[in-house]
């Protein structure tokens, strides 16, 4: 599946503003006893080189399902039933959905890296932190000597604010914040082009969160990777991301630049979500959040999944499902022929 770029040719595919990831119609089902639960439904988006794409949505909206499908880390009963994930790496383009396990292994760390919410998932509890870096570094660069690998490990940990004297610590000897930073540094150890993060800072304090994210941004300046960043904290994403995709009930309901999404949200859910975060400094007004609760995906509402909670619903919203057109999936913004 790997298509080699013509030698010596700098194609648009590796230029600074080119597409690094192109997801089309990705659909993921959980095959449970009852009817399948569709936790990712016809998800499409592109990610440009060097871009930070945020994914926000409430609990159960399918964010983690999307991330694990993107990185092929999903486990049964999750199954990708449709769609493609084209990854345009330095070494050519591949469809991650149809990659074999060994092809996938070759990409992991060097091209595609993952950071999950719990650092303990990424770190081996019985191995010194530095040794884990050395292992990863040397398995992807056979020519790298032990000594140089240890030096590189110290350097990487230093970049996330962990001093050289902690390199020989075991994970449990570090604080939660340090472990999380170590797992971020580990993800970046082999210079990946794409880093996918699922709630990487949800378990840490705002002060530590800020430090970690500042370090990620610094590293991104140096190394130039792209990021998909998942969180339920839209207020944080608005500051961090270039563009943001809003998920509701397994679908992207709106995708736009952080600035437009904040200043001018088009989907009623996006507006409700934005207005669920009281401002830190600007004048306070009464906010109401979004009445009702997110749907049970075992039994999703017909039509637009948001219609039972939508303040703007109108005739037909309970029957016709709006598709994502021009960055928004809402019937208020579509002409007749775009409706599903």
């Amino acid at each position: 599946m790997i298509t080699e770029p013509a030698p010596g040719l700098v194609t648009a595919a590796t230029g600074p503003n080119s597409t690094v990831l192109s997801v089309r119609g990705l659909t993921v089902d959980y095959l449970t006893d009852g009817a399948p639960v569709r936790a990712c439904d016809d998800v499409s988006f592109t990610l440009r080189r060097g871009e930070i794409l945020g994914v926000a949505g409430e609990s159960g909206s399918g964010k983690s399902t999307l991330i694990t499908a993107l990185t092929r880390l999903q486990r049964p009963p999750a199954v990708t039933t449709e769609g493609s994930i084209e990854f345009h790496s330095r070494d050519g383009s591949v469809d991650l959905v149809s990659l074999s396990a060994s092809e996938l292994r070759a990409l992991r760390w060097t091209s595609l890296a993952i950071v999950l919410q719990s650092a303990m998932d990424a770190l081996n509890p019985v191995m010194r932190i530095g040794a884990q870096f050395v292992d990863v570094l040397r398995s992807h660069d056979k020519g790298l000597g032990r000594k140089d690998a240890w030096a590189r490990a110290s350097e990487l940990l230093g970049m996330v604010g962990i001093s050289a004297d902690r390199v020989r610590s075991y994970p449990h000897e570090l604080s939660g914040g340090m472990r999380q930073r170590a797992s971020i540094a580990l993800a970046l150890a082999c210079g990946p082009e794409l880093v996918v993060m699922d709630e990487p800072t949800t378990a840490v304090d705002v002060v530590m969160q800020r430090q970690i994210l500042a370090q990620v941004l610094r590293l991104r300046r140096e190394l130039g990777f792209s990021v998909v960043f998942v969180t339920h904290d839209l207020s944080l994403l608005l500051e961090l991301a270039d563009r943001i995709a809003i998920m509701y009930a397994g679908r992207i309901v709106e995708i736009d630049t952080a600035h437009s999404l904040y200043a001018n949200p088009r989907h009623p859910y996006t507006r409700g979500l934005r207005d669920s975060f009281p401002p830190l400094r600007s004048p306070l007004r009464r906010l109401s959040g979004i009445p009702g609760s997110p749907p049970d995906l075992r039994n999703p509402p017909a039509g637009c999944a948001f219609h039972p909670r939508c303040p703007d619903r109108f005739e037909g919203c309970d029957q016709e499902r709006p598709l994502l057109v021009d960055g928004v999936a809402c019937r208020l913004h579509q002409s007749g022929e775009n409706r599903a």
Binding site: V206, Q209, D233, L236, L238, Y262, P279
Partner: peptide, 10 residues
Amino acid sequence: IDSSPDPDRI
């Protein structure tokens, strides 16, 4: 306070 998200700063 400086570490708290504040979308008005974007």
